[in-house]
Amino acid sequence: MSHTRHLLSALALSLYATSPAFAVTEFRGGGFLTGFSGCSGWGSRESVLVRYQPAGAPENHATRSRVSMFHHSGAFNYSFDFAPGDYPELGEWFAVSTTKVFGSGYTIDGVSLRLLESSPVEAIAAGATTIFLAFEVSNFDGLTGCTARGRVALALD
């Protein structure tokens, strides 16, 4: 069974039911990154703010999801292509396109993400619009071998 696939499919369905017409569907919130390993220049933890536009939701791209993560002095944008119902399993790595704006803007190669937990699954399936996500980043900031984990709390805007 694809836990993540079911979760995100349910999420997409709940968004169709709750989003106003003609508005981009976006979750906003914040959380943290921590557990930096092999990440020269990154400290023990970072508070982050997040914007997330899930693919397939009303007025969003059919397959392209976008996540922007704002640090104190810069930002990353991660995007990836999965149709609703076709997301990777929990714990499964997937490549993301990454753009970094820290003083200047440029793309970074080799970054991967994976979702570790998402809750409350049942509540989302029932139409909840506030979610917690746990994730891990590989080659964070384009640093080969650098990993970090994070959690965010997001609500439908």
Binding site: G29, G31, F32, A153
Partner: peptide, 22 residues
């Protein structure tokens, strides 16, 4: 330390709060 969101504003229109405040 971390972050999150304030949402479900009800009766707060006079102060301009709306949607999801990060």
């Amino acid at each position: 330390r971390g972050g999150g969101v304030i949402t479900d504003f009800a009766g707060c229109e006079v102060q301009g709060f709306r949607g999801a405040e990060v």
